[in-house]
Each structure stands twice: as C-alpha cells, then as structure tokens.
Design a protein around this nucleic acid. Structure first.
Lengths: 189, 189
DNA sequence: GCTTTTGGCTAACGGAATTAGCCGGAGCTG
DNA sequence: CAGCTCCGGCTAATTCCGTTAGCCAAAAGC
C-alpha cells in the first residue's frame, strides 16, 4: 500500500475546497478521505478531528480573505479603497462559501491561535480602509464593527440565498458601498 | 404509559427553547425527547424529522422577530423607529440565538411556506421604518437589504462572540444606528 | 361499548465520528 | 547494506444520532 503523501496542510486545503463544493454541513470525514484517496481513520494522523479540521479551515479562510482584501485595496484610498475592500470580501465569500462558513462562531483559543492571528490580519485590512476617512479615536472601533457587520451580513445573507425578491443584488451592493462611504464621510468623527 | 399530550407546536416550541440553550448544533432529537419526557421516536409523530423541525423553528423565530420589531416601532417614526427596530431585532437574536440560527440559509419551499410568510412579515416591519425616510423606488429594496445586512451581521457576529476587543458593544450598536440614520437621511433618495 | 385513530413504545438499521491496535515502507545509523 | 525506528497507512470495533418498522394502549367518535 503506497503512501498518499498527505500532511496537515494538504488535508486542510482539500477540506476547505470540499466545503466550498458541498457546503460546510456536507463536509464529512468520510467524504474528505475518499477525495484524498485514503480511508477515513487515516485523516486522524494529520488533524485532531472534525472540530480541529474546521478550526484550521476557518484560519485558512481568514488568512485568504485578509490577503484578498489587503491586496485589493493596495494603492487606493477613501471611497475607492472602501469599494475595493467590500467587493473583494464579498467575492471571496461567494467564491468560498464553505470555508467562510467555517469561520462563523469560531472563537480563538488564545492570542497565539492562528484563528486570532489571521482574524487580526483581516481586521487590519479593513482598518487601513478607514485611514482614508476622518475617523479617529473610539469611532474607529465602531466603524470597524459597522463595516464588518455590513460586509459579513450582506455576504452571508446572499450566500445563504436570502435576497430573493426583485432588485439586482450587485446593484444593491454598490448602493451599500455608496451608503457606507457617505456615512463615513458625513459624520465619522 | 400515560400520554404526554404533545403536539407539533409544543415540540417546535420546546425545540426552539432548547436550541437557544445549547446552540442549534447541539439540538439533538434525543435531547429534545428527553426534555419532553418522551422517547426519541415519539417525536416523529409530530414533526417529520430534524430538517422539518429546524424549518418550523425557523418559521417560529421569524414570526417572533417580526412581532418584536413590529411591536417596538409602533408609534415611532424616523430615527426613533429605526432605533427601536434595530434594538428590538438585536435583542431578539441575543435572547434567542438558537432559533435565529435556524433561519440562516433556510429557503422557503413555496409562497405558502410559513417560512416565506413570516419572513415577509419581518421584512414588512423594516419596510415600515423606511417610510419615515425619503427613500423611494428601487432604493427601498437596496435600503432594506442594507438594514437587514447590518442588523443580521451585527447580531450574529456578537452572538458568535466576535467583537472581542476593546470598545463597548452596546455603544457600537448605538453608533451604528446613528450611522444608518445619517446615511438614510443624507442620500437615501 | 366497539371501533378507529392517535400517540406512545421497543427494536433495529445505517451512517458518521472516533479510537485501538496492527503493519509495511521510508529514512536514518552503523 | 542490514537493521532500527517512526510515520502514515490500514482494519476492526465502539458510540452516538437520525430514522423506520411495527406493536399496543389510550383517547375519541359512532
């Protein structure tokens, strides 16, 4: 029996990809093992179990989201940066619904938890956007939470299939970006 | 063996309460049966199975949320109505995280599905809030999606334990209400 | 009062996560 | 190169959960 040459990173990456395909709820150890050409118990040599796997997928997703948002805003400021960040975030969630779903309700176990580290990177990417606005002091925290709520809410609701009625969803999202931009410029400080 | 006197509504209500206690993921047929003083298979005389139970819990949650939001905004308009609606919604989600979680990613099977009916009622409650602002035409749809994303995002993120750092969460939420109010008055139409 | 329906129950199955324990191959050591 | 060690597969078995089948008594209706 030849070895499959797996390692934790490969298992997590495959798990994330599979979650994107079949949904996080459909991600089963057996299905993942089959996808990797291996029997189910072999996975436990690389990850601690389903919860550990989900945590690692979540950390991966946060890191990738941070990269996407950070990269998209490079060279932009103000409204352009806000729009780029929001679009990049939504695009990421829609392209990778499974791994993003893994991040929901996941609390870091400590300051060194990759989940905390990568989450902070994503937060920093949004913080950078705020530098183009006159927001300071405690308002920065509030504005960050607002942006996070807005982006997270819209992306997850759309990914979940809410928003079924009339108007065009992309249009709504652009409207939402304009709305946030107005609000941040109008009374952010 | 005396009868327990259950009916679908009682099972769903107990399921919703249990979900609020132990989380939607922790809601198991066995646990619910035990809570109701009954053996597991007996539940299947009242609900079709776990998916059916979750759908019914979701419909219940949407209806209760609609009542809460609609009731809270009675007699208010403009910013007051917006604040009342947002606070009522968030309070509901924080008080009933399990049943609210059941609503996420749940698609109505048809126009007569209680899920659709109750969801529409909740939507109407928010639509009423917008009547106090000069928002019209397609902007109503966009504004509704914005409000929904904002409230849903904030409430679920807080309920999931995000927002761990410094600033006070209630303060952030009030800031967010003020932000939305500004935005809706500034350029809604 | 008898019959029908309803709502409990036990027993049994299937699928998923996980653990225990075996065993062969890869790689290092002499 | 021979042998030792460790790693990463495997099979087998356990447990827990959802679900179905089929039985039987209590309630409800004639």
């Amino acid at each position: 029996m030849p070895r499959a040459g797996l390692d934790p990173a490969a298992v997590v990456e495959a798990g994330a990809a599979l979650a994107d395909e079949v949904g996080l709820a459909g991600l089963t150890m057996g299905l993942l093992a089959e996808r990797l050409g291996v029997r189910t118990p072999s996975l436990y040599k690389h990850v601690g179990g389903q919860e550990d796997l989900t945590r690692r997928i979540a950390a991966l997703a946060l890191g990738q989201a941070a990269d996407a948002v950070g990269g998209a805003t490079q060279g932009y400021a103000g409204r352009d940066a806000l729009a780029a960040a929001a679009r990049a975030f939504r695009a990421f969630v829609l392209a990778h619904p499974g791994r993003y779903a893994a991040t929901i309700g996941m609390e870091p176990a400590g300051p060194d938890d990759p989940l905390a580290t990568e989450g902070l990177r994503l937060l920093d990417a949004f913080t950078a956007v705020l530098r183009g606005y006159e927001v300071a002091g405690p308002d920065v925290d509030h504005a960050l939470r607002m942006l996070r709520s807005l982006c997270h809410g819209f992306a997850t609701l759309q990914s979940a299939g809410a928003f079924q009625w009339s108007a065009d969803i992309d249009e709504s999202f652009e409207w939402l970006i304009a709305f946030a931009d107005r609000g941040l410029r109008a009374g952010g400080g």
